[in-house]
Amino acid sequence: MALRTLQVSPGFMRFMPKEYQDLVEKGPFGRKLKLSDLGTYKELLEEHPMCEGCAMAFFIRLALTALPAPEHTVIVGTAGCGRLSLSQAAIPFVYGNYCDTNGVATGIKRGLALRFPDQPKDVVVIAGDGGLSDIGFSQVMHGWFRQEKFTTVMLDNEVYGNTGGQESGMTKRGEVVKMAPIGKQFEKIDMIGLAKTAGVAYIARLTPTNPSRIISTIRKAVLIAREVGPTYVQAYTSCNIEYSIPPEKVLEDARQVEKERYGFLEIISDEAKAFLAAQDAAHRE
């Protein structure tokens, strides 16, 4: 995608649906937008079929808002709830097989770098805990160890929510979910620790309690992946269906989980810190 692909051919604008007219005239493409600009422009994603009160849908909306250059971004996802909305966003979405999102992202990133050597292209994997920590685990790790320059965002709802509630590697120890009646026998996989071991340049763990922090985290992750190395964001996005959280209590649950065990964590490599400092200095000038 590029800004050029967002120009409607002469004479066809009046036949375009309202949504597309708005995307062209009032969309986020080629603009520097902030969180406070939400509501003043046409967002990349407005309608989706996710459940009422879904924390994941909320997080995805903010994550898409945070992309520094949506017109130069490709999202890779896989089976799971997240792709229901991601595939409907006004941004190229590649549906990887369940096991290979990060392998697919590697190929896309390298291909785009060859095809567009003068234009940075961002590749962002956004997938669930099942896709990244279980079924796609090996390719996540290989991408990290090979220092592939793209961002991996885990939508950690701590369960296979889309298929009825099986436990995942990210489910808490002892948790009983609908299709795991005796409770999980093992610890939650320490993906943060693994990312650290693999030399991931920027690692963050957060919950959807603070929109500004989500935006700043995703933006940093994408920019660092563009220039420095792999980045990883792990976001707690509860499944209110499988964990029986009433929609109006979803954010309350997120706050509680943040306080009790998830917290906000940021690990930045020295190289990434230097890069961010240079970015800030350039921005101030």
Binding site: A2, T5, L6, S9, P10, G11, M16
Partner: peptide, 15 residues
Amino acid sequence: LVLWAWREGVADKAA
């Protein structure tokens, strides 16, 4: 491929 003027020649085809 016709609706978006994504490269040279598309505008002519659209016309």
